[in-house]
């Protein structure tokens, strides 16, 4: 009975292996055209640097980390990854419309926790991911996916540590999800 409703409510996702093959071919195409892989967190970094520069240019330049990404003639937003990430958003939107998943704003959470808890942990998780992606020179798409696919040693290290440590932490965080 339960199984039945479950299947009826199931949204139409691609077959994961089909999606994977498409994603793999996309990585291949990206490397073929641009010589580098996909990415996502780099755009957020550009946004951070840009806002810091707008708010207080001198301080942003003086910052040892952000200063590396500021140049006088080109805005940090004028960056390959920023355009790619904008496309990423549009592509998600397109798929959401096509498969009927675009709905009014909502929070998805496990029935075991409140909306507020979910949002707090999303914020915390995002912040950790932000810090980690700077140490790891990329996130799951840039380092783990594109890095591993191009046989980069560091990419494989990042992939193994992300998934490995997430499995370890999963036990402690189980209340959040199941």
């Amino acid at each position: 009975m339960n199984m039945h409703t479950l299947n009826n409510n199931r949204p139409h996702y691609l077959n994961p292996y089909f999606g994977g093959v498409l994603l793999g071919l996309l990585v291949l195409l990206t490397v073929f055209i641009t010589g580098r892989g996909l990415g996502a967190s780099g755009a957020v970094k550009s946004a951070v640097v840009t806002t810091a520069e707008v708010v207080n240019q001198d301080q942003a330049k003086a910052n040892a980390y952000m200063g590396k990404f500021i140049s006088d003639d080109i805005s940090p937003m004028n960056n390959w990854l920023v355009f790619e990430t904008f496309g990423l958003f549009l592509g998600g939107l397109l798929s959401g419309i096509l498969f009927g998943r675009l709905k009014k704003p909502r929070v998805e959470h496990s029935p075991g926790i409140s909306r507020k808890t979910r949002l707090i942990f999303a914020l915390l998780g995002g912040a950790l991911f932000g810090i980690g992606s700077q140490f790891g020179r990329g996130c799951t798409s840039g380092a783990a996916l594109s890095g591993s696919a191009t046989f980069s040693f560091g990419g494989v290290i990042v992939m193994l540590t992300i998934f490995g440590s997430a499995y370890v932490f999963a036990w402690f965080a189980r209340k959040l999800w199941i």
């Binding site: 990415g39 780099g42 840039g142």
Partner: peptide
Amino acid sequence: KASVASGGC
């Protein structure tokens, strides 16, 4: 040579 751009993902 392929430009090794700074800043990862």
